[in-house]
Design a protein around this nucleic acid. Structure first.
Length: 1124
RNA sequence: GGGCCUGUAGCUCAGGUGGUUAGAGCGCUACACUGAUAAUGUAGAGGUCCGUGGUUCGAGUCCACGCAGGCCCA
């Protein structure tokens, strides 16, 4: 009866399917969790994917990473619950629906009701759930798909509202503004994706000014700053320099007023502003109107030395006066010397960079107050200067007699041509031009010119957009910056640089989290306000909302609840219809925004359990997460929102360990895209290779945080090299174990210390492997773990252990030696199945079940076993060293044989191995037999110091001597290189030698030099790794005869195979006599030949007519083989 | 423009704290072995360690500045 199933060929995809079916039928996943009831829990959070698109090959990688550690920790005895989840809100969903319905955002609420639209979104969002579930199953990602959290679920949203209210109560939510693209012509903000529509950016010619800002307390020193939006200059409140850039003060004249002055700009930008001829011109000889304006650099200054310099306001309008530290030079990291002056003008209201920089450095911006006391920019929402500025400009136009195409009032200064004035009118002057002329006249402009650049336009009106402050709701994350940074330092990031760099730097430069999105499908902001914005209420639960509705109905603001007679839905439009009562009795309306969809996913630790309304115990037991993993692109997405909510609301991290994996690119390193057709279909790939090789390839090829250049060839290689070898090894075991009716019985194994050396060696290696793998998994390093398993399997187990132990398996009957071999190989295979199971869950389980199928009390699946810790007592490093020497020496002998053209079948008398110390000699002696049989040599002789034939060489031990001698190392090296026999002998004998370096005496110790044997004159020698081997190539008669005999065995074996004989079939051999040498050789070794070939008889009574002719290279032999 | 990652053989990747012959697998070529056989072994060819400077007795490794590719953010 065959106890171990044998396989002619393996179908890896089929193994995947079979094992998957087995898991399903036996509820193995469920058991892997229920088995650990009461055990410590290891918490994993699933970052929710969005199922409105099909999964790609990169999802295989991301999901495999998650799976590996959940499986590993289960083996280690933890209970690992993993709840699946779906991300269902957000812009991508809406865009897809818009596209399918053929509508734009404008049409929502007009051509289609918000209710219908959102219904459509809800239907779309799970469209590909089936494919996702399929992929998840097929790649063996164990996650609970039956009870996932879904972010549009009313319970989920209710938890979000609860968290928002908590933030609100902590005074961490406020209404403010950010600088966003805004179209005054259309009267609406534009999203970044609207701005990225083709055709939005257009090349336009604008008036650009290099303005002069007069430095306070200096006679005639001006800072130069360049802008393509002169209309923002009245809003200037600071100038920014680059700290590392070089600046110069240049003495020259103003080209418009001809006044003598000194200007400040970046050194690298001088060529853009000065005619080189001016450098040679005489400053004192300058006359107003001269074409060449002389200049002279009077001082060079580092950017950082300019910080804090004060200057006068460019447009000194009384209403726009600002306190300190306005009108100061500050630094900003984005300042360059690519264009302009290397000094950037900052207007807080009209540039996102400007805004951020000024907020971070606490510099006020130019704003006015409206009737409600709210700050407003000096350009209104129509794109027109407020009258305060208009009056100033009007008076300056009069003062400087500026002639224009129409009569201006103070309320006419549009910053772009939104009034469609005729630009071809000769007298047409834009506001930018008017500002330029004023500045020119007032010695405040250094250069004015038309400048062509790319500028964004509104796709609806074709008019230029402005960057403009728009109202938004914010979470005051900056208030918790220090805590966010401190908690981040306790998180174990893989790779570390993503935590300290990408994420850490982002936290250091934190701005408040802009929560508002003006869209339709998402979690509504649960904030109601009265018209004046003086009364605000934040709703934190469904119950609270319903009570508030009742209140409102009682007050007569609402007729009835929108949820009357149906389920509560917290989405738009239902919540929009709810009017609440303020404390002062005012009507309150919901703020129309949705919240950022990242809040949804960042709140999943709480909302997935409907915390705090339900499941408080489960939540607490599973918080924070021990482990999460997502792509590095989530750094500012999910990783950030998880972290922020945890720190701000729960004074905790949300996750302790995180892997941020890289991208999956195509094999040429290009981004995969469906459009380019280079995307790899995960389902096809799975069909071709099965799940295990795919997972193994993706995780072992390179660290997961490096981008993976996905190449099918790589999967093929992994499959062939690792899985193929492992499969071969198993098949080898199964074949012979079945022949010998061997069955592993853990209760009756031969104790390891009674097993042969080779067995103890591979078991020692195996324990080392367990240790190595465990350490790697514990450090969240999959790649080193999988590589170690692969190398052990291929190099140590298959190519060395099995190769050397082969004969033990097929020679003779069952005995202790044979049993030890079976047991050892079995134990190795079983351990490998366990070690590899997190990465290759299907194949490992299949292997495990094949191995254990005959056991009485077997465990159902490898995934339900316990991690078998490394048994330190079995680790024998000196044995491992010995074996390493055996491998090295064998390799050297092989290379010598190759050089001498002596095939391994030809036995040779001896090798000489020089050994310089007793320890090495002992190590080699240990494995002498092994080496002899491996390379077919009769004896090994050692040459030690007492023999004269050894030639040694010496070189310094640089690591030791370098530290000691430092700069004198060159001389020491030279000296040592010149040593001959005597010096080497002396240091070996006395352990030290006196030397003299640059006249100074010093003592060199033996360990400070490296002595190697180099050559044995007159022998064929090979050296590697400090080991030298010499081969005796003389062939005695007996050796020749043995060579012939072994050759003969080889031919007979091949012949047997050709005859189709089974391993156990017996034969008789009849040879036609050839000549004395050959006949004698065959007779002398007839016993050997008979044993090897399973021959009962070997006789020289063949008949050349009735035989097969064997080609023996140097001669031919007529032989007849008959089956007995 | 900023932050971070990557750059070592034709390809995919290793190369703690700097130490003098830079490694592995695949691929290629040749040879061998052969009761694991659609397996295996050995050898050979193949390197400006992205570049330029610097620190050092000594740099693939440390520092600076670049170049190329990628991601995120502007």
């Amino acid at each position: 009866m065959k106890k171990y199933q044998e396989f002619k060929q393996v179908d890896y995809p089929k193994i995947g399917e079979d094992v998957l079916a087995f898991w399903k039928n036996n509820a193995v996943f469920e058991k892997s969790i229920s088995n650990r009831e009461g055990a410590p829990s290891y918490t994993f959070y699933e970052g929710p994917p969005s199922a409105n698109g099909t999964p790609g090959i990169h999802h295989v990688m991301a999901r495999a990473i998650k799976d590996v550690f959940c499986r590993y920790k289960t083996l280690k005895g933890f209970q690992v619950k993993r709840k699946g989840g779906w991300d269902t809100h957000g812009l991508p969903v809406e865009l897809q629906v818009e596209k399918e319905l053929g509508i734009t955002k404008e049409d929502i609420g007009k051509k289609i009701s918000v209710e219908e639209y959102n219904q459509k979104c809800r239907e779309t969002v799970m469209r590909y759930k089936h494919e996702w579930d399929n992929l998840t199953e097929q790649i063996g990602y164990w996650v609970d798909l039956d009870d996932p959290y879904i972010t549009f679920d009313v319970k989920y949203v209710e938890s979000l509202w609860h968290l928002l209210k908590k933030l609100y109560e902590k005074d961490l939510i406020y209404k403010g503004y950010t600088i966003q693209p805004y179209s005054p012509a259309a009267g609406t903000g534009l999203s970044s994706h609207e701005l990225n529509q083709p055709g939005s950016y257009r090349d336009v010619k604008d008036t650009s000014i290099t303005a002069q800002f007069k430095v306070k307390g200096e006679e005639d020193l001006y800072i130069l700053a360049w802008t393509t939006t002169p209309w923002t200059l009245p809003s200037n409140s600071a100038l920014a320099i680059g700290e590392k850039l070089d600046y110069v003060k240049v003495k020259t004249f103003n080209p418009y007023t001809f006044a003598p002055q000194t200007v400040l700009l970046a050194k690298a930008r001088m060529s853009a502003y000065f005619n080189p001829k001016g450098a040679e011109a005489d400053l004192s000889a300058y006359k107003p109107g001269d074409k060449v304006i002389p200049y002279q650099v009077v001082e060079e200054i580092k950017g950082k030395d300019l910080i804090g310099m004060k200057y006068e306001q460019l447009f000194p309008i009384d209403a726009l006066a600002l306190p300190e530290p306005a009108f100061t030079v500050i630094s900003a990291d984005y300042v360059t010397t690519e264009d302009g002056t290397g000094i950037v003008h900052l207007a807080k209201a009209f540039g996102a960079d400007d805004f951020r920089t000024l907020v971070q450095q606490d510099v006020p911006g130019i704003f006015l107050k409206d009737e409600k006391g709210m700050e407003i920019p000096i350009v209104d929402k129509k794109g027109k200067f407020l009258p305060v500025v208009g009056e100033y400009l009007l008076s300056k136009m009069e003062e400087h007699s500026i002639q224009v195409h129409k009569t201006f009032t103070a309320d006419d200064f549009y910053v772009k041509n939104y009034t469609h004035d005729d630009e071809n009118d000769k007298a047409y002057k834009s506001t930018d031009v008017i500002i330029s002329i004023i500045l020119k006249n007032e010695n405040k402009a250094f250069k004015v010119e038309k400048y062509e650049h790319s500028y964004p336009h509104c796709w609806r009106t074709d008019m230029p957009i402005l960057y403009y402050p728009l109202e938004s709701w914010f979470i005051k994350t900056t208030a918790y910056k220090d805590k966010l940074v401190a908690f981040n330092k306790t998180i174990n990031w893989k790779p570390e640089s993503t935590g300290t760099g990408r994420f850490g730097n982002w936290l250091e430069n934190l701005v408040d989290w802009n929560l508002s999105r003006s869209r339709f499908w998402g979690t509504p902001l649960p904030i109601w306000r009265n018209k004046e914005g003086t009364q605000t209420r934040c709703i934190g639960s469904v119950a609270e909302l319903e009570a508030a509705i009742e209140e409102s109905i009682a007050k007569g603001y609402m007729k009835e609840s929108p949820y009357k007679g149906k389920e509560v839905d917290l989405h738009r439009p239902f919540v929009d219809d709810i009017v609440l009562v303020a404390e002062n009795g005012d009507k309150m309306f919901r703020e129309p925004d949705l919240i950022d969809v990242w809040f949804d996913s960042g709140a999943m630790p709480y909302a997935q359990w409907h915390y705090p309304f339900e499941n408080e115990e489960i939540f607490k037991a599973n918080y924070p997460a021990d482990f999460i993993a997502e792509g590095v692109d989530q750094t500012r997405g999910w990783f950030f929102t998880l972290h922020t909510l945890a720190v701000m609301l729960f004074d905790s991290v949300a996750f302790k360990n995180v892997i941020a994996n890289g991208l999956v690119l195509d094999k040429n390193g290009n981004k995969m895209s469906k459009r380019l057709g280079n995307a790899v279909d995960p389902f096809k790939t799975l069909k071709e290779f099965g799940p295990d090789a795919l997972r193994w390839y993706m995780l072992s090829n390179a660290n997961p945080w490096d981008n993976l250049k996905f190449n099918k060839e790589g999967v093929v290689e992994v499959q062939r090299r690792f899985f193929g070898t492992l499969q071969n090894t198993y098949n080898f075991f199964a074949l012979y174990a079945n022949l010998d009716a061997f069955a592993y019985d853990a209760a009756n194994v031969i104790p390891v210390n009674e097993r042969p050396e080779l067995d103890r060696w591979i078991l020692s290696k195996l324990q080392s492997l367990i240790k190595e793998t465990e350490t790697a998994y514990e450090n969240y390093d999959i790649t080193p773990a999988s590589r170690a398993i692969m190398n052990f399997t291929v190099d140590q187990l298959s190519n060395w252990y099995v190769r050397l132990a082969r004969k033990r398996f097929w020679r003779g009957d069952m005995n202790a030696d044979k049993q030890a071999a079976y047991e050892t190989l079995y134990e190795c295979l079983e351990v490998i199945a366990g070690l590899m199971s997190p990465v290759a869950p299907f194949y490992s389980d299949w292997l495990y079940q094949n191995l254990t199928s005959s056991l009485e009390n077997k465990t159902l699946s490898v995934h339900l076993t316990d991690w078998k810790p490394s048994n330190e007592a079995l680790i024998n490093l000196s044995l491992e060293n010995s074996m390493q020497l055996a491998q090295d020496i064998s390799s050297l002998v092989h290379s010598l044989r190759k050089k001498e053209r002596l095939k391994v079948r030809q036995p040779l008398q001896k090798v000489l191995i020089p050994v310089l110390n007793a320890e090495t000699k002992g190590l080699i002696e240990h494995v002498e037999d092994l080496i002899k049989s491996e390379v077919n040599i009769k004896s090994i002789e050692y040459i030690d110091d007492t023999s004269d034939i050894l030639v040694k060489s010496v070189k310094p031990n640089f690591a030791l001597l370098g530290k000691r001698f430092g700069p004198k190392m060159k001389a020491v090296n030279q000296l040592i290189q010149q040593w001959g026999k005597e010096e080497i002998a002396q240091i070996e004998k006395e352990g030290q030698v006196e030397i003299s370096i640059d006249g100074e005496a010093a003592t060199l110790k033996l360990e400070e030099v490296l002595i190697q044997s180099q050559d044995i004159p007159g022998w064929s020698v090979a050296t590697d790794n400090g080991i030298t081997v010499a081969l005796d190539v003389t062939l005695s008669t007996e050796l020749k005869e043995e060579g012939i005999a072994r050759d003969f065995v080889n031919r007979i074996q091949n012949f047997r195979k050709d005859m189709g004989l089974e391993v156990q079939d017996k034969i008789r051999i009849h040879i036609a006599p050839l000549n004395a040498t050959v006949d004698k050789a065959l007779l002398n070794f007839s016993d050997y030949i008979k044993t090897e070939t399973q021959a009962l008889g070997l006789t020289l009574d063949g008949d050349s007519n009735n035989s097969t002719v064997l080609d023996m290279d140097e001669f031919e032999l007529a032989v007849k083989v008959e089956k007995v």
